[in-house]
Design a protein around this nucleic acid. Structure first.
Lengths: 181, 181
DNA sequence: CCCCTGACTTCTGACAACCCAAGTCAGGGT
DNA sequence: ACCCTGACTTGGGTTGTCAGAAGTCAGGGG
């Protein structure tokens, strides 16, 4: 069986269509190019994701984050430093009268842009389970309907998996990179 | 500073609004309820995600998956078994004339529903990097525009972070669960 | 029977993630 | 100066993930 582009049929599930030079997928195996892996290096740990989750739920203080995530203080501290360093969170000093200066952790724009990922993972996690009573649900504040992550293109079209494609970002650049390697 | 619902202001980034009994977030700290963590238990490893990625790009055969992910055979084999066991992939025997029976790995419906997560992580990973030449881009097959993951409610509204909320899925059930613990 | 080949299993070792416990550091107040 | 408190650091231990290497298993063909 050659690596032809798989055709969706009743028993062949859809996948992305490979376009341009990427149709020959095996010609483009390079380390360090994958944005998925870049993302996972930053948020690919349970501790990062549960901290991000709690910040999305409104926690800002270290003690809240530790309590609500169940992480140890050592892990929370280290991971928060990491997330701040990567630009997902920002650390801001604040002070209540009569108390010491403390820091709160707030989302940056980059951190906020993880929202669809968090929504998507939570919706997907729901699919995994038989139990539909425990836990929380993300909803639309005004209408109450459940949230889900969807895929769209920058031109505004809804794009299901079978209408998606994958291509090299910059074919000329990639050809040069392969030549230089 | 009390854990009031944070109000979005110019310098206070948006977060989800906590609704109903979940407004008191600290009252609902329980292990095992979180769908995000359920999801991460299945796909929260680099090996799982890069395998899923390659299946989305059209790979089906073991040797393709090993080569394109760069994973060791041992890791790929174990992780594929895991993904099949969790229902993301299905293993199907096929046979070319004159060759032995082999298995291909194809997406199940559950696996396909990771599409927005993969798109979201890749888009987010792009935000992380300075380099916009290397790697691939996910695009809309017909119009060529880049894909992104967005959040919408099941009623069809687009829901940015500041219009999202989080509530207990089943307040009565949750009250009972806390009482029983 | 043997051979080939693809997939899997086993083993070793390195590293990362995370828990727990103890201790240190630093910002304020008195 | 001391004290309190919140956040961080350090150390030890466990577990999981993964690479690399070697070996085994299993499906076919001759």
């Amino acid at each position: 069986m050659s690596d032809a582009q798989p055709e969706p049929t009743l028993d062949r599930p859809a996948v992305l269509e490979r376009k341009g030079a990427f149709a020959d997928r095996d010609a483009w195996i390079a380390s360090g190019w994958c944005r998925l892996e870049s993302a996972l290096e930053v948020v690919g740990t349970r501790s990062a994701m549960v901290l991000v989750r709690e910040v999305f739920y409104g926690a800002t203080r270290f003690d809240e984050l530790v309590r609500r995530t169940g992480l140890s203080e050592a892990v929370a501290s280290g991971r928060l430093k990491d997330l701040v360093g990567h630009g997902l969170l920002e650390r801001r000093p604040y002070r209540e009268p009569g108390a010491r200066t403390r820091d709160e952790y707030v989302l940056t724009d980059l951190g906020s842009r993880l929202f669809p990922v968090v929504v998507g993972l939570m919706a997907w996690g729901e699919d995994l389970r038989d139990d539909h009573h425990s836990g929380v649900q993300l909803v639309h504040r005004d209408c109450g309907a459940a949230l889900e992550a969807t895929v769209r293109c920058t031109a505004g079209h809804d794009v299901p998996l079978d209408e998606g494609a994958v291509r090299l970002k910059d074919e000329d650049w990639a050809r040069g990179a392969v030549r230089r390697a």
